[in-house]
Design a protein around this nucleic acid. Structure first.
Lengths: 137, 137
DNA sequence: GTGATTGCAAATCTTTTGCACTAAA
DNA sequence: TTTAGTGCAAAAGATTTGCAATCAC
């Protein structure tokens, strides 16, 4: 599977999400969006940034991940209590969760047949349907 | 919907899960299993216990919830990062999550048509498939 | 008695916040 | 300039842990 996107248009992405393209945001956007889709925690992204010599604080990584999520550039995935992951793939799809390793991988939408979903109660709206296939040794 | 089970067989449940029926475990088991199925956090259960005059520490509530989960008496539900909920309904079913209020309700299995699921990779096994329907104003 | 269980307080871990400083427009 | 963004260190919140005291068998 080829998934390298050597030019992720980081600058334009930030602009279109209404975010100022600062040094930190540009660097994090490149780490996130150049290359394959990924599932990453704040701590992991911070470590990667440090490893590449990008000076950015952990607090800014957290802020940035939330701003990107708010701007539709990322989607938050919740599979473990006590830690958040962010998915660079914001299109409709589902997830495998490897319980041993904590790894997350995508399940393409066509691999899941979700033929019936209950209606939303009252005046509420379905924002999203998460499907998590939990795997075990 | 009638769902009161005035006698939850707390003592026998603990025994069959291989847990000594101590005062604290019995009290918590009664709070959890007498009455309707519920979705409860450690903090909530601890408050309820206190309100009923049951002396039990928060640490013991956490330990007990995990022991009950390990013994198949409860199932952990993960819908929010940073807080765990436990479900007294351990049979196959799914969940609505009300994002505004943080409330969780059950979706019966027949209300969801899950006609296709991807195979587990490698030598792995599917332990569970979680479906969370996230609701919004 | 003996080993499992409990309570407490401290520790841990992730995430958020307040605020002075810096940088983008 | 002017306002948004950043870094730091402290705070917050949930959960876990170590260990002496207590309880079930």
């Amino acid at each position: 599977m080829t998934c390298v996107r050597p030019f992720s248009h980081a600058y334009e992405r930030l602009r279109s999400a209404g975010l100022r393209p600062t040094r930190q945001r540009l660097a994090l956007a490149r780490l996130l969006f150049d290359g394959c889709d990924r599932h990453i925690s704040a701590e992991q992204l911070h470590s990667e940034a440090m490893a590449q010599g990008v000076r950015v604080s952990l607090a800014t990584v957290y802020n940035t991940l939330h701003q990107f999520t708010g701007g539709g550039l990322l989607r938050e995935i919740i599979v473990e209590s006590g830690r958040s992951y962010f998915d660079t793939n914001t299109s409709d799809h589902y997830h495998f969760f490897f319980e041993q390793s904590g790894r997350i991988t995508d399940i393409p939408p066509e691999a899941v047949g979700l033929s019936k979903i209950p209606d939303a109660p009252d005046g509420l709206r379905i924002r999203r349907v998460d499907v998590i296939v939990r795997l075990d040794g």
